[in-house]
């Protein structure tokens, strides 16, 4: 086993990467559809629920597919890692996971506050639904970036 090797990713870190990339990509696709429609159509007439649903579904399924593909690639390129397959998640992964979740909860809580305010002032369902979607997206991205920063820079 080579010493002084670079800090390769763990399985947990790879899952964070796959989640971040696929969720961000699927959200970008949703906004790429939404923004042009929003410019020329009143919000009450926009059929936003199916595209948002498909975007979320694509993000979740994409995360799983990308994670599986990544593991296959790693298994082929770094066969030595298989020997530690029994230790998929360790104490460092759990500490990083807790830090990421704490940050995500703060973002989610703030965003949900905005959703409640929109509902309280009687905003259109479009704005309420999209605020909730954006809030979930921001929490997911914030959690992933926090975790990746801790994985790469240390703590």
């Amino acid at each position: 086993m080579a010493e002084d090797e670079p800090l390769y990713t763990t399985r947990e870190e790879r899952q964070v990467w796959s989640g971040l990339v696929t969720m961000a990509a699927s959200a970008l696709l949703y906004y790429a559809w939404l923004v042009p429609v929003l410019v020329r159509t009143p919000v009450a007439e926009i059929s936003w629920v199916p595209p948002m649903f498909w975007s979320m579904l694509a993000g979740m399924v994409g995360t799983i597919v990308v994670a599986i593909v990544l593991e296959i690639v790693v298994a082929v390129r770094r066969p030595g890692d298989e020997e530690q397959g029994a230790i998929a998640v360790d104490v460092r992964d759990r500490e990083i996971g807790r830090s990421g979740s704490r940050f995500a909860t703060a973002v989610l809580g703030t965003g949900l506050g905005a959703v409640v305010i929109l509902a309280a002032i009687g905003a259109d369902h479009f704005w309420i639904g999209n605020a909730a979607f954006l809030c979930g997206l921001l929490a997911t991205v914030a959690e992933a970036i926090t975790k990746l920063r801790l994985y790469r820079r240390g703590f």
Binding site: L7, I87, V91
Partner: peptide, 26 residues
């Protein structure tokens, strides 16, 4: 090896590397 130590500690080899490099306080 780092892998041997990781196995005895029940952690991933990356965690041992991170500790040695001062990127993680155990």
């Amino acid at each position: 090896t780092q892998a041997d130590l990781a196995r005895r500690l029940g952690v991933t080899r990356q965690t041992v590397i991170a500790i040695e490099q001062g990127r993680y306080s155990p």
